[in-house]
Amino acid sequence: MSVVPASYPSTRWRRAKVGLFRAFTILALAFVIGPALWIIGGVVVKAVPGWRWNVLTTLSQGTSGGLENAIVGTLLLMLGVTVVAGSIGILTGIYLAEIAPPTRRGRSSGAVVRVVIDVLSGFPSIVLGYVGYVALVVGLHWGYSFLPAVLILSLMVIPYIAKATESALHQVPTSYREGAEALGMSLGYGLRKVVVRSALPGIVTGLLLALAIAGGETAPLLYTAGASNTLPSIAPLHHPVAYLTYYVWTDWNQPMASAHVVSYDASLILIVMVLTLLVVSRVIVARTQRHSESAR
């Protein structure tokens, strides 16, 4: 004979609450996944039937032709952003999480840097684009070109990378730092070999998000990279750079069907690029994390 009744009056209510909570989480998930699948599916359905492989290998003629120049341009811009924003953003995050000396009240003195970063991430991208136009393209006489585009895109995504890096480093157990310190590793050596290594998935995720944003950005590029139907020049200044989002945006606004095909092709290529980036980075992270505590 059990002393406890088989079912409390509250049991049903508790189960209902759990069920409700579960339903809400599934709904929230659907809100995230639904639009993503819808957009990807829509682009694939529109782009694949008219797909020509020579899009990858021929130059654009504006509202028709290929996208080789834009693909190369976007890849170069992403590479530039990886180098500029990646290094500055990751170093900023490391500074905030590990180096900024804590104040007497235990708060990090990196507060100023943090506020600046928040303000920076709050700017609309078109404002940054216009700043780039006024200051770099016109002010420094750089013209529409690679360097101002990379600098402005980097300025835009540095906050994401810095914040992702900082929060990833905060997740690293203190015991790793103490262990490194107690072995007589210098701060920099311990960071490189032990701490940053275990924060890598978070850092890479942040960098990836930043690259996806940069690759998919249009407004600041209109002001800084200009537009071009030729392959990007080696010169970082005075030569406009082509990029995929330009064709997505411009050609969609054209009346011709051929232009719409170009627009969908550019969207599809951009999505494939971002997804590839995602998969490759996951593989890299999985390889570096095979000794992590969570991967036992």
Partner: peptide, 25 residues
């Protein structure tokens, strides 16, 4: 040297753990 309350191996292979300090110095 120091040994802590909770084991704190680094997120690297067993061998790399043993030689981590040796490499650093």
């Amino acid at each position: 040297g120091m040994l802590f309350q909770r084991p704190n191996p680094f997120p690297m292979s067993i061998k790399d753990n043993v030689v981590a300090g040796v490499k650093a110095h």
